[in-house]
Simulated scan of single mutants.
Amino acid sequence: MLTPSPYRVRSPLFPDYTTVRHLLRIWNGEPRENVLRMITKISDQTGTPQDPVDWSEPDKWINERLKGPLAELAMRMWRESDHYVNPRHSYGTYLFVNTFELLATDPGGVYRLTENGRLFLDGDPAITRELDEQEGVLHLLSLLAARPSAKRGDLLGEWGEYLHKYSKFGTESTIKDTLRRRLVNLLERGLVDRDGMAYAINEAGKKHMGAVRPKEKDPKQDITRAIQHFNADQRERLKETLAHMDPKKFEELVGALLDAMDYQDVVVTKVSGDMGIDVVGKAQFGITTVTEVVQVKRKKDKVRRPILDQLRGSLPYYNAIRGTIITVSDFTKDCVEAALFPNAAPITLINGDELIRMLVEHGIGVKKTQLELEEVDETYFVTLQEREGEL
């Protein structure tokens, strides 16, 4: 079994398990120094944002950028994984297999498969669950199980709290990246499903969770989940309310939203003679003030490209250089593609989910209630005890 650790989420560059299994087989019997030298040589040639290097074709770049045994090793990784593992992205697996001792070096410095490594290769459920536990994967599944579905942004708060409490990571960028990598891992294993930007635990994920011994419940998690469920229900109610609003009142609501977003001179146009424009406002960009026109669509049908073309054609009548379409539904694919057509005036598209988010953020049609939890500050008493010991 794995060596116990007080920390969770131990691998910053957390790999998917298919990559790990491929490289365990390939690196078994390979000098560890060769693996590290190959990774280092690749890292030395990664380039910069201003001068990027293309790593998308291993068949081409391996022999151009690596030589001798390092090139041979990289080519084996690429070909023996059936073109699954790009050697450019193997450092995370290197850290992972060493952290959890899935490979160990013999007296000659050669990698050998350990008992844990063999169990992992064989798909042993116990070792897999241990790895999932130590890497925070089971906790992430529990967060997803508490929701019908969730975008990454919906999970960041609780995931960040978990990292601050149990890991050595805590920066905003690391919180986001560790979450993203574990979601990729779960997707690759078929334990969660993805629909657009939203993730949801599936039956396989629930079964995987059910095989884990339940932990003592944290009352704060119960409260947090209850609030999340309540908020999700309220957002659905808000969306339904918008769908049945009087069209003119819906336009007024969008005008109020623009006001709350610091647009200036916001005007809801009259029903006739408005060229399809419903709201007009001015936005400040640096030292420049630009006019923006908005068309709103309350119907549940997806907005199609002719609506966008009509809005774009109306811009000159308002001396506007950009426009926005807001709908309670969504947009067709051709409409999305036309929104940023080269050399054409940009059109921002705001669908129902984004509109709800903006209304909640700016408090339009939504009231927020502040809740307070009183919790013993254990750090204070530990610090106080340490001070007494110094006296």
Rank of each mutant, 00 (worst) to 15 (best):
G205P: 05
E30N: 02
P87T: 10
V137Q: 02
N98M: 08
E354T: 15
L143H: 05
E337L: 14
D259N: 12
A232Q: 10
T3K: 14
V53N: 03
K249D: 15
L24T: 12
I307E: 09
E354W: 00
N202W: 11
I127P: 10
P49H: 04
T174V: 15
L23D: 08
L66F: 07
K248T: 06
R21W: 02
T241A: 11
G365L: 07
S81R: 03
V294A: 00
S142V: 04
V137N: 01
N98D: 10
F250K: 03
P247K: 05
V296F: 10
R112M: 05
D274T: 01
G363D: 01
Q221E: 14
H83G: 02
H22S: 02
L349R: 06
E292P: 05
A338M: 09
R213A: 14
M1Y: 02
L384W: 01
V328W: 04
H139S: 11
E252A: 09
L355W: 06
D222A: 14
A320R: 03
R225W: 15
T93S: 10
V271F: 07
V184N: 14
D177Y: 06
M75C: 04
L258G: 06
L179P: 05
S11Q: 11
V296H: 08
D218S: 10
D265M: 08
P52S: 08
M197S: 15
V303P: 01
I277P: 11
Q134I: 10
V294D: 02
R181W: 06
D106P: 05
R182I: 03
E390G: 00
K333F: 07
V296Y: 11
Q385M: 04
A345T: 00
T19Q: 13
R10D: 00
G365K: 04
Y317V: 07
L186N: 06
L119I: 06
R32T: 03
K67P: 05
E292R: 15
A345N: 06
L311Y: 03
S43L: 03
R8K: 15
D54V: 09
Q310D: 14
M77H: 00
G365W: 10
H83P: 01
K367H: 10
K60L: 12
G281A: 11
I277Q: 08
I364N: 08
M245T: 00
H89D: 13
P49M: 10
N319I: 05
N343C: 07
V303N: 02
E158D: 15
E188F: 01
D274A: 15
T105I: 13
E251N: 07
E251K: 07
K248V: 05
P316I: 12
H164Q: 10
S149A: 07
E374F: 11
F169D: 03
N116K: 00
H164L: 14
L13M: 09
I277N: 05
H208I: 00
